[in-house]
Amino acid sequence: MKKQSAIIFTSVALLALLVAPHFLKSYGVYLLTYWLVFILAAMGLNLTVGYAGQKSLGHAAFFGIGAYTVAIMMKAGFSFWLGLPAAAAICFVTGILVGFPALRVQTIYLAFATLGFNTAAWLVMRNEEQYTGGTFGINNIARPELFGLSLDGALAYYYFTLGVTIVFGLLLFGLLRSPWGKAFTALRDNPIRAESLGVDVRNYTLLSFAIGAVYAGVAGALFASLVQFIDPAPFGVGQSIMMYLMVVIGGPGYFFGPVVGAAVGVVLPEWLRFAQDWYLFVFGSAVVLLMIWLPDGLLSIPDRIRARRESREASAARAAAVTAAAANAGKGSGA
C-alpha cells in the first residue's frame, strides 16, 4: 500500500518534470534546473546527515569545489566530460579527509569542525585569484555537448540535469536499500552498538562524507555550467547552513526530503526574489516553528498522522475491551 502510493507518486512527479518545461518560459526552465541542482546536492547531504547522522555544516564547500574544478578545467581547455569526473573524484578524496574529524568528535563539535573547513575553502576561493578569479569569479563558463548535441539551450540543459539527477537518485536509492543503508542508519542511531556488531564505524563514517561530497561536487559542476558565472558567494558557510536546513526541513532520512527542502530553500526564494527580505523573514520564522512542531521535517507528516491514528485505534481498542469486560462482568454477576 505504502509502496504502491510511493511508486504512483514518483511516476506522476517524473511525468510532471518531463512535461512541465514546455509550459514554462525560459526563466521557469532555469528555475527548475536550479532546483534539480540543489536536489542533487541536498541528496548527498541527506546521506551524510540524515542517514549516517554526521552533522556536517560544510557541504557548500564540496559544492564549490565541484563548480570551481569544472570551471577552471574548462577555462584551461579541457572538456566538461573530463571536468565532471574530476570534480567527483576531488570531492570524494576531500570528503574522506573531512570525514576524519568525525572519528574524533561528534554532534555540535563536528558541526563546528566542518563549518571551519567550509570557511577555509571559501577563503581559498576568494583569495587565490590566479586560479579562481577571486571575488570577480570566473565567467563565460560554457555548457557541454552530449553525443554531438549542444546542451546550450535552457531546455536541453534542463533535460540533461534531470537525467543526471535521476541517475544519481537511483544510485543513492540502490545504495540505501543495500546493506550499506542499514549500516549507515546503525551508525546514526548508535555508533557504539554498531561497532560491537561488526559495523566498521570508521569506514562507513568516511564514506558517508565522501559519497555525500561526490553528490555535492557533481551538483556544483552542473551549477557552474548552468549559471555560467561563479564567484565565492554561493559556496560560503551561509550556503552550507542553508543546505543543512533544506535537509532538515524536508525530513532527514527521508529519501524525497531534499526534493521538498530544495524547493523551500532555494527555488521559492529565487522565484520570490522581488520579496526576498520578506521571504527570508518568513522562512526563518517557519524554520523555528517547524522545529517545534515537526522536528523530523515536512515528510514526517504522513508518519505522524499514521502514528496518531494507530495510538487512537489502540486506545479505542483498549476502551472497547474495558467496556466488553465490564459488560461481561455485569452479566456474570447478574447470572
Binding site: 546493506p179 542499514k182 549500516a183 542508519t185 546503525a186 554498531a194 556488531l197 561488526g198 559495523v199 566498521d200
Partner: peptide
C-alpha cells in the same frame, strides 16, 4: 539483520 550483515 544489521547485527549480522557485516559478517557476510
Amino acid at each position: 539483520i544489521v547485527a549480522a550483515q557485516e559478517h557476510r
